[in-house]
Amino acid sequence: QVVANPEQYIKHPLQNRWALWYFKNDKTKSWTENLRLISKFDTVEDFWALYNHIQQPSKLNYGCDYCLFKDGIKPMWEDERNKLGGRWLITLNRQQRHNDLDRYWMETLLCLVGESFDEASEDVCGAVVNVRPKGDKLAIWTSNCQNRDAIMTIGQLYKERLSLPMKALIGYQSHDDTSSKSGSTTKNMYSV
């Protein structure tokens, strides 16, 4: 299709408005001071304008995060819409920063803005990428860790979208368990 008059071009609206946050680990500041809202968008075109403008996760410094959340949900456990929820967590090895991280993050974003999880998309709160020396992490956060059907739908489709091998298991952990853990591992409520 040819757009005759660019001023009449209507952008493609997304189901949700999304907010992209950036976390920079500055030890002289508090956790909340380090969390900054970059921008919000609610069309396909504005999503790409933002995506094309910012650094890929593999170029970020250690300790930095990107978070993409539905407008109105803060990227923290304490938010009303997160506190009963949890996350599908994918832990990458060091080699995967070079090979997979940026691709996985883009696929994650496309799953969110495109509402790829059918009805279960309503359970999605957002997604987070953590860039860490020991291994980067990707997660999709959902609103209620008791919504088994929605969580399993999201986990299965997410794994397919990232083309993870069948035998590779990914786990879902409640924020409650993650925030109260004493050791270095949190038990999985679900896995696919």
């Binding site: 396909v44 304008a49 094309n52 495109g114 509402e115």
Partner: peptide, 20 residues
């Protein structure tokens, strides 16, 4: 109706938007 976009549709706009 829900506004859902599949992967290929979204990817088709990656470089269109940059010139707008």
């Amino acid at each position: 109706a829900k506004k859902r976009y599949d992967r290929e549709f979204l990817l088709g706009f990656q470089f269109i938007s940059a010139s707008m």
